[in-house]
Design a binder for these strands. Structure first.
Lengths: 226, 226, 226, 226
DNA sequence: TATGAATGAGCGTTCATTCAT
DNA sequence: TATGAATGAACGCTCATTCAT
């Protein structure tokens, strides 16, 4: 009676939040267990609903899964766009640093962990979703970073590297460091470092790799000092 | 190798090649479908055996899964050790390049793809295996790379970077590029590049990031130090 | 009419035409799908109502089913009585022909098809309804035909047959021919005959069977007596 | 252990009787409950098996149902052919009487009751089975009876009636009387008659309807009697 | 050892029934 | 009165596991 499976016993039937509630719960459960092992009953319980209710909004488990993936991907895109829109135009390095921090926050969010797991574990059986993910998430993000670096190359902040190539290096480092930081119990590598330190290390490494050809002494400092 | 993350060595009677056959088949099927969705029947079929036979060698599905993971991890370690033993001591850069190429081959092998999928998708429910993986695969590899870089730093091939930090950057880039190359249909980023080009790009990027305070630095510094 | 095979008259408030609408829709759906496979939702949709509304008039699916059967049976009885009342007293043969044509029309109506299906498919689980059907439909109709034949026997139109026995033969022939005519695609037997022809054949056959022993009164007996 | 759901505890796993066992049980349960209301578990229990076992032999409930129908129809055909082969050629009337008795036995068997129920209740959703039934059971039987009557017409035993028309009258009478006799509790019509009496009544009625046109007979007989 | 028929617990899905509006 | 969202019991079907052979 007073037992609420999650935490909200107060509001009864706010009618049009159902699909979102279900998707949120489903993302969590799918993320924990994977598609096959996730039980609709658990998703329902987590959403504070009963099993049958899910079927009022989604035709079956697979379609719910697809919707979860699509929804999460789209949410990620929108979040990124919102962030981008709010961004101030600065030097390429500063823009890059800002992007890295924003991306890092996302990488460390539970939703990302779930999405990442699902993408790698299940999307081989959903080629359309895999393509959607590749196009809308990976390539989109690569294009964004490529643009920033391109600007840096043009204005001499960075060396004359192929911006697309450089862009491809950043994501992996951030992604994997994000995962390591999310499992500090499992990986000593990042165990005794703060997130802040880790980001700085990645960013520093990345900037070293693309810093202008050293003929000019201390590239960044000499520039800014001028 | 002699490390057993859990505690049961009882089904260790390997009368012939059965266990290995089963493990190989299981890795493939688990890799394709995931733990929950994989059917023992399919594993048996792939191994050319009948369902019941699996139970002569493994007490149940979960234990088979654990053994598949353990076995694959151990195989990976052994392979790496074998490679390392065969390696000639060269300059750090050359050693690094050699390591990268060997690692790349592994990253592109089907067994790695399966292992990667399973590690990320299922190991959250098998903390002991996760720890085993973290320790014996990730950290081991990091230590190895760290050692190479350390040598390079000491002999002036590389700049004065924390070798452990640099080492952490290499794996992610290789790993993700390996995955992109394995799914060229999904990712335009690497679609029109050969594996060779991709490795070179990664290696080049990495070496740029750790190259000694560039040719420019040293001369001038030696000057100023005078 | 006033016979209620079970015992509950409580939901008898028929404020408008709702109950009739529902019963009509239910008869159609039950007739198509059977009791178990019929979905209340479909009945509601067919009646132009919503699912919940049915429960304002009928306590549950089973009771709705019972009422559909009762109602349909009663309607059939009333229809027959109305017809009978309108009938002109004629020769037994003519009365018989008239009855046959009226009955035939009913046999070919969709409501009868549904009722027949339900009676044979479901009534074994509803003994009270089965008894009601046997008493009020089958036996009633048999009594009616018996009466007509009795008259024919008495006035010499028909031979000296047991009227009750003869009566039992008529229904089955009409019934099954009705079904065959309703499925001419499935049965070649009646495929290329009109309904008119079929009725005539049945009636002719029946009259031949009960026609008076021709001038030589008792045909067979005269034979044997020789 | 010693509990046997039906009646056979002695033989364990006579391997190749499974499909037949299941079909027999399924016919009974489907016949009692109809397709939708029949529970696989009940069929399994009746067959002395467990639920899952059915799926080793039939892919799903619907296919089991189809197989039950097909199988029962074919069994009926084979039974009829066997009977026919054993039949002695006699006068048409005697052959007819023999056919009637054989058919009657079948009509009163539990398998027929089940088949009849299923045919009328479910076959509208299985057009292929309905066509199969129409062709292989109804029309086949009609052809058989038609042939007998044709012979009787040719040799003067019966009047000059269209044999196909006459044939169509016999089945319905037998069928419905069979059903009435199977439910003597529900129908007073046959309540106090033995099966023997009922068959005789039907046969007598039928023979009267097709007895040689008495008009022809009379003159000659009246002559001789004079 | 090896097999594969048999089992039955478990989950996805449906739908009669309820009830807040 | 009427609605339709919500519930949860019930059932079809799957598959890990057992076991007689």
């Amino acid at each position: 009676m007073t037992i609420s499976p999650t935490q909200e016993p107060r509001w009864r039937r706010l009618p049009e939040e159902r699909p979102q509630q279900i998707i949120d719960a489903a993302l969590a459960i799918f993320g924990e267990r994977g598609l096959a092992a996730a039980r609709l009953e658990d998703i329902a319980k987590r959403a504070g609903l009963s099993k049958g209710t899910i079927y009022l909004y989604f035709p079956n488990k697979e379609e719910l899964f697809r919707e979860v993936i699509r929804h999460t991907i789209i949410a990620q895109i929108e979040r990124a766009e919102r962030e981008l829109a709010a961004a101030v135009q600065q030097s390429a390095s500063e823009t890059l640093a800002q992007f890295v921090r924003g991306y890092w926050d996302f990488l460390r969010s539970p939703n990302f962990a779930a999405l990442f797991r699902l993408v790698h574990a299940e999307l081989s059986n959903f080629p359309d979703l895999a393509r959607f993910y590749g196009r809308e998430v990976v390539e989109r993000k690569l294009r964004l970073v490529t643009g920033i670096i391109e600007r840096g190359v043009r204005n001499g902040e960075f060396r004359d590297i192929d911006p697309a190539v450089a862009a491809r290096m950043l994501g992996p480092m951030l992604l994997m460091h994000g995962m390591w930081c999310s499992h500090r119990d499992l990986f000593k590598a990042t165990a005794n470092k703060t997130d802040e330190q880790v980001i700085d290390e990645v960013l520093d490494f990345f900037l070293h790799a693309i810093r202008p050809a050293p003929t000019a002494k201390k590239p960044r400092e000499s520039h800014s000092s001028k």
